[in-house]
Amino acid sequence: MNGEPIVRWDWVARNWANGSPSAISALLGGHVVMAFLPVVLGLAVALPLGLACVRWPRLYQPTAALMNVTYSLPSLVLFSIFLSVTGLTQATVVIPLTFFALAVLIPAVVDGLTSVPEHVRQSAVAMGFRPVRRLLLVELPVAVPVVLAGLRVATVSSISLVSLGALIGQGGLGNLFIDGWQRQFPTPIVVGISLVLLLAVASDGVLVLAQRLLTPWSRARRSA
């Protein structure tokens, strides 16, 4: 690169929010939607499915095997296959990423629920908790650290995988990579990578904070 700076800040300033759909802020917005929607949908499906797998353990083996196979498929492959079903829409990115989120979240929910110590469960029964209240007030809160660990993995991967969607025309910040490559111009690429990393670090931080707020007892125990 003969003298071309890695980042041209004036380009960033001009393209941050210029009202066009390819403005950096617009791409960031689309990226956020396509990255978080799969995680939220995945969690909504993984919770009941994980509960079912704990309740009927025979379900877990086939579910885990299916998720393992899904997880080994490259995301570009799934995007390409869904392209023929859902066309050039955000769903073509969101649906495959939901499967990836599920592949991480179902084991996390199952591990979390099975990590609840037996004496805790029995204490809850002895205190008169009925199954549903016991699940909501005792077992799920105790499972929070394990589930959130899975949620962190799923969120960060989802944020980085969305950018591959740019190859099928729906990639949020990933479009900056295509743009930079086609014009042999590093600035958009560097800006895209930095924003993806920032988004990942920020979301991870929020989830760590959420875990601290949701499990106050773990801090109390440490300081005691």
Binding site: L164, G174, F177, P186, G192
Partner: peptide, 19 residues
């Protein structure tokens, strides 16, 4: 490990090859 999970594959690829 954490950095690799967050790094966008396509971005890394085009940047390295471009540079």
């Amino acid at each position: 490990a954490n950095a690799a999970r967050a790094l966008p594959t396509l971005g890394l690829l085009v940047l390295v090859v471009l540079l």
